[in-house]
Nucleic acid binder design. Structure first.
Lengths: 148, 148
DNA sequence: CTAGGTGCAAACTATTTGCAGGCGG
DNA sequence: CCGCCTGCAAATAGTTTGCACCTAG
């Protein structure tokens, strides 16, 4: 992710463009997989001289609320975040349990579900969580993958 | 949920049929909505005389791992659990953000997604998370609903 | 009887908060 | 220069663990 791109996103969110925010977006943008708050922290510390872990939490939370980054659900007790290169269009993610790689999943049958809920019980859908877990192509093909 | 039913489920999981386990299943079975560990604890304490919170955590975790109860994802920091009356067939849940009611969602377009992932990248889907959030029919119709 | 189940107390750890100072617009 | 941003230290709270005792099968 280019600096101008992260700056543009931050401006659009009416957040100040600060080195910390940009560095966190750059850090996540460099990865093909998700990271936890402390993993992000370890990676950007050397680049920034110093940064507090609470700042990392605050920024990750802001970006996740804004929808710029996605929360990945795992059985560990941590929150994990992924910055998708594809910021356009509604889609979801396929998460490899072996190598932590995240791939896009375009298909999402949720429009039908929303219609069903409205029709059947008069309810209204405001959001949904969809995450596909599995083993990615390269891990299936004998690459053992880096086990967590 | 009847005692024989909970006993049968526990036997099938090769877990001993104990009063604590049955009471937790009964407690969740009585609800139309999800509960957190401490909420379950508060409700079953008077019925059992005494029970430790760690026991509640252990049992909820066992049941969730076994697929008997479903974890509900919320922005609070807690794990929330729901025991679905419908234990048959693959389905998901519609969670009302206003009154916490949970309804079944039969439709799930995931077979197609699995096929796509296998075809495109050679990956394999092992599990998925799908939860629909919104406002249920009765909350939409002016019933303000018990706000959390 | 014996392995699994449970209570209790204590530990753990991810995450949050308060406040003083810093810096982007 | 104003108000958001950040560091630091400390608190918070949900969840887990260790171990001795208990009970279902």
């Amino acid at each position: 992710m280019e600096p101008e791109q992260s700056a543009a996103i931050l401006k659009q969110l009416k957040l100040k463009v600060t080195p910390r925010r940009q560095e966190i977006m750059n850090c996540l943008g460099r990865e093909q997989s998700y990271l936890s708050a402390d993993e992000v922290w370890e990676r950007i510390k050397p680049r920034l001289g110093s940064i507090g872990l609470p700042t990392v939490y605050r920024i990750l939370d802001e970006l996740a609320e804004a929808g710029v980054i996605t929360r990945i659900f795992l059985s560990d007790r941590k929150q994990n975040y992924f910055l998708c290169a594809n910021q356009e269009g509604h889609h979801h993610h396929f998460v490899c349990e072996s190598c932590r790689r995240v791939e896009d999943v375009e298909q999402c049958g949720l429009e039908g579900v929303s219609r069903d809920i409205a029709r059947r019980s008069g309810g209204r859908v405001t959001s949904h969580i969809l995450q596909i877990n599995g083993i990615c192509g390269s891990c299936c093909q004998g690459h053992a993958g880096a086990a967590p």
